[in-house]
């Protein structure tokens, strides 16, 4: 395979055990906990992959192993053909990493200085840098705050600055850990559109972990769901919906507020004045006729399960299922 088509990320049987100490001094015991178990993951050039999972599922440990911060205890991993833990420094100039909850910019320096430093640290030729900086400044609208110290930037501005710093050296792979956490709706959408454009125009491969399912629905054609260290699902977003039987919801507007409706095959989950939400476990037609028989119904809508409830159901199911 030519390098352009070789996988960007290739992990086979990747695992990471931690030794934890328990109890107080004389009775202290050591126990081994697997944060990541037997993860197989292949990411091809140009893909955008969402890496989802509840807190403590091993997402950040996996990201740390892919970026060379953490050494795996088992398995084999190659990122852009390099072994991250052995060739961390070489790998660093091929990938861009953004941790959403903490900045990799220099806190007390103006953003411009951080970006200029990045050029030297990554040894980007001056004219390449100037071109890319101009481009990123335009797209991410960095202009107004380039000379502001990073600590004074808003979260959204800082995240844009972080993205610029991670992309100035033209990485093949962009690893994002919670890129939209804590951002307002406008900033979130700016960043999502930017990432889509980056992926489309430059073919940059993007691997992101997120809790924001809006990110997933807008950005990812492929999602990987991890739970308790192992992979619970790997495939398209549609497949994910089909794989987990998440209930459909019937929204009923009654003529007047009423106590929560309970009918065979319909269970009330939420009441807001005259409006009620019924989780369906049977044929909607039957439930509708039951409800209409007992109450005066003004309006009805049937909602397909959102990606949120699908993922929630997947986490609840626990054990690795449909792959």
């Amino acid at each position: 395979m030519s390098p352009e088509h070789a996988p960007v990320v290739e992990a086979v049987g990747l695992g990471r055990d931690f030794t934890v100490r328990e109890g107080r001094f004389p009775r202290r015991r050591r126990r081994t906990v697997s944060a990541v178990r037997d993860v197989d993951l292949t990411v091809h050039p140009g893909e955008i992959v969402g890496y989802l999972g509840p807190n403590g599922a091993g997402k950040s440990s996996t990201m740390k192993m892919l970026t060379g911060i953490l050494t795996p205890t088992s398995g084999r991993v190659r990122v852009t053909g390099l072994d991250p833990s052995r060739e961390r420094t070489r790998l660093a100039s091929r990938i861009g990493v953004v941790f959403g909850q903490r900045t990799s910019l220099w806190w007390d320096l103006p953003l411009w200085d951080s970006l200029a430093l990045t050029r030297h640290l990554y040894r980007v030729p001056a004219d390449d840098h100037a071109r890319r900086l101009a481009e990123l400044t335009g797209v991410l609208e960095l202009g107004p705050f380039l000379s502001t110290p990073v600590r004074q930037l808003s979260l959204g501005q800082r995240m844009r600055g972080d993205l610029a710093a991670a992309l100035l050296h033209g990485p093949r792979l962009l690893v994002l850990d919670e890129p939209t956490i804590g951002l307002d709706v406008v900033s979130k959408s700016t960043i999502r559109e930017f990432l889509l454009r980056l992926n489309a125009r430059e073919g940059t491969t993007i691997l992101l972990t997120t809790h924001d399912l809006g990110d997933v629905e807008r950005l990812c054609e492929r999602v990987v769901v991890v739970d308790r260290g192992g992979i619970a699902y790997d495939g398209g977003l549609d497949g994910l919906r089909a794989s987990v039987p998440a209930p459909r919801v019937l929204v009923v507007d009654l003529a007047a507020p009423a106590p929560p409706i309970e009918v065979p095959g319909g269970h009330c989950t939420r009441v807001e004045g005259p409006r009620q939400w019924l989780e369906l476990s049977a044929n909607p037609a039957r439930v509708i006729s039951e409800v209409a028989g007992a109450h005066e119904v003004v309006d009805l809508t049937l909602r397909e399960p959102g990606i949120e409830s699908v993922v929630a159901a997947l986490y609840r199911a626990g054990s690795p299922s449909a792959v």
Binding site: I69, T89, V97, F99, R102, T103, S104, L121, R123
Partner: peptide
């Protein structure tokens, strides 16, 4: 503790 050491580790400089 603050995680900025991780940020140092993903740069191609010692």
């Amino acid at each position: 503790r603050t995680g900025s050491f991780d940020a140092m580790l993903v740069r191609p400089v010692s």
